[in-house]
C-alpha cells in the first residue's frame, strides 16, 4: 500500500471498482437524505389519510349529495341542481331553526365565554384553599355527565306538575311554569342546561391560563404599586388572551352543536320549533325524515357559515391577543 501510494503523486482518479463504490455511497446518501426529508410526511401519512377519509371526503361528498334528491338506497338519483338550497328558504321549519340558531348564538356565547372567566377570576385568589377544589369539582362535574343522564335529572327538575322548580315556585306563591312546553320559556330551559354542561370546561381552561401567568411580572407590578384591578386589566387579562381567544373561537364554532344534546333529549325542537336550531334541523332532515340531499345542503350552509365566522374572528379578533 505504501509503495503504491508513494508511486502516485496525487489521487487523480479512482479505479473502476472504486468509482462504483463511491457512486454507491453517493446514491445511498442521496436516498438516505431523501428518506430523511420524506420521513415526517411518512409519519404523518396514516393520520392524514384518516383525516382525509373521515373528515374531508364526507365534506366533499356532502357537497356533491346536496345537488341530488337521493337517499343512498333508491336506484334513481335525480340531479336537482340548487333545489335543495332554494327549497329550505320556503320551509317555515328552516326559518324557525335559523331564528333559534341566532338566539342560541347571542345568548350562549357571552354566557359560555364570560361567565367562566368571571368564575375563574373569583376562584383564582383562593387557589391555595381547599374550597377551590370543591368549587372546581362542583362546576366541572356536569361536563363529564352524559346528556342522556343529565336530561333525566333536568326532566325531573323541570316537570311542571311534580318538578322541584315548580314546587319551590308554588311554595313562594308563584304560578306554575311549563319549563319545556311553553314556547317563550323552553329556549331558556335549554340555555340553562347547555350552560350548566359547558361552563366547567371553560372555567378549567381559564384557571390553567391564570396559573401560567409569570408571578415575577405580577410581583414587579405590585412592587410598583399596581392595584389588583390594574394588575388584572394590564397584566393578567392580556396574558390570558390566547386562552380567551381560543374559548371564544371554539364557542362560536360549537355553541349550536353543544345545545343539540339538550334539544334532542329535552324538547325535540319543540314546542312549535321554538327550541330548534340549524343543527337540529339538519339532524331531522337526515335522520328523522331521511332527506339526505336536503340534509347535505344544510350541512354545506353550516360549514360555510362556520368557516366565515371563524375567519372573521381571526381577521379582527386576533389583533387583541397577546402571545407572550
Amino acid at each position: 500500500m505504501e509503495n503504491t501510494s508513494a508511486s502516485l503523486p496525487t489521487i487523480a482518479r479512482p479505479r473502476q471498482h472504486e468509482r462504483v463504490h463511491v457512486a454507491h455511497i453517493s446514491l445511498a446518501g442521496r436516498i438516505g437524505k431523501q428518506m430523511e426529508s420524506l420521513a415526517p410526511y411518512m409519519l404523518l401519512l396514516p393520520l392524514v389519510s384518516l383525516i382525509l377519509l373521515f373528515v374531508y371526503w364526507p365534506l366533499v361528498y356532502s357537497f356533491y349529495l346536496s345537488f341530488f334528491d337521493w337517499n343512498f338506497v333508491t336506484a334513481n338519483k335525480p340531479f336537482v341542481g340548487f333545489d335543495n338550497f332554494t327549497r329550505m328558504w320556503n320551509d317555515r321549519r328552516f326559518l324557525e331553526s335559523l331564528n333559534g340558531t341566532w338566539k342560541y348564538f347571542v345568548i350562549l356565547v357571552p354566557i359560555q365565554v364570560f361567565l367562566p372567566l368571571g368564575l375563574a377570576l373569583m376562584l383564582w385568589p383562593i387557589r391555595k384553599s381547599r374550597m377551590q377544589n370543591t368549587y372546581r369539582f362542583v362546576l366541572f362535574s356536569p361536563t363529564v355527565i352524559a346528556y342522556s343522564v343529565a336530561a333525566v335529572l333536568w326532566l325531573w327538575i323541570f316537570n311542571p306538575l311534580q318538578g322541584v322548580l315548580n314546587k319551590v315556585l308554588i311554595d313562594f306563591g308563584f304560578e306554575r311554569i311549563n319549563w319545556l312546553s311553553d314556547p317563550d320559556v323552553a329556549i331558556w330551559s335549554i340555555v340553562i342546561v347547555a350552560s350548566w354542561k359547558t361552563i366547567g370546561f371553560h372555567l378549567l381552561l381559564y384557571l390553567a391560563a391564570l396559573e401560567a401567568v409569570p408571578t415575577d411580572v405580577i410581583e414587579a407590578a405590585s412592587i410598583d404599586g399596581a392595584s389588583n384591578w390594574e394588575t388584572m386589566k394590564s397584566i393578567r387579562f392580556p396574558l390570558i388572551t390566547p386562552t380567551f381567544f381560543f374559548v371564544l373561537v371554539t364557542t362560536v364554532i360549537s355553541v349550536n352543536d353543544d345545545v343539540f344534546g339538550a334539544i334532542n333529549v329535552l324538547t325535540d325542537g319543540g314546542p312549535f320549533n321554538s327550541t330548534s336550531n340549524i343543527v337540529y334541523y339538519l339532524y331531522e332532515q337526515g335522520f328523522v325524515f331521511f332527506q339526505i340531499g336536503s340534509a347535505s345542503a344544510v350541512s354545506v350552509i353550516v360549514f360555510i357559515a362556520t368557516a366565515l365566522l371563524t375567519w372573521v374572528q381571526f381577521r379582527f379578533g386576533e389583533r387583541f391577543v397577546h402571545y407572550g
Binding site: 311542571p160 306538575l161 312546553s181
Partner: peptide, 18 residues
C-alpha cells in the same frame, strides 16, 4: 289539558299527579 313534553307527562302520570 296538561301542557308538558311527552316524557314529563309520562313521569307525571306514573308519579301519581296526572
Amino acid at each position: 289539558l296538561n301542557r308538558s313534553t311527552r316524557a314529563e307527562a309520562s313521569a307525571s302520570f306514573v308519579g301519581g299527579t296526572l
